[in-house]
Design a protein around this nucleic acid. Sequence first.
DNA 1: TACATGACTTTTA
DNA 2: GTAAAAGCCATGT
Length: 108
Amino acid sequence: MSTYDLIYKTVRQIPPGKVATYGQIADLAGIHGKARLVGYAMFQIDTTCNDIPWHRVINAKGEISYSTVREGGDYLQKHLLEEEGIEFNSAGKINLNQYQWQPNFRLC
DNA sequence: TACATGACTTTTA
DNA sequence: GTAAAAGCCATGT
């Protein structure tokens, strides 16, 4: 329907226990270089539907980006990620080298 | 219609 | 490694 639909599909395809960055989502969704749209789509999800694992989407720094206006709300996403089995660094960051989603190369 | 804002990324210094 | 600026596009006023 629109760019957002592609983003939602990509986010849904993130396996549990893994995370993906905005740039990666944008690339997989076919909108390379438009990571801002991904973040904007996430904002829409939070107020429209909760059927999407938005908590698995993080920034390129491996840090959580819940909302710039909601201080402390990051705890929710952190808790959800911990439920997925993802651990956090001393600085509250995620080890992308291990937890970043690495989709297969269409071997199916 | 046009301007300003925003859960970001990447490059350059 | 940190800091600043440019680029991208949809949404709201």
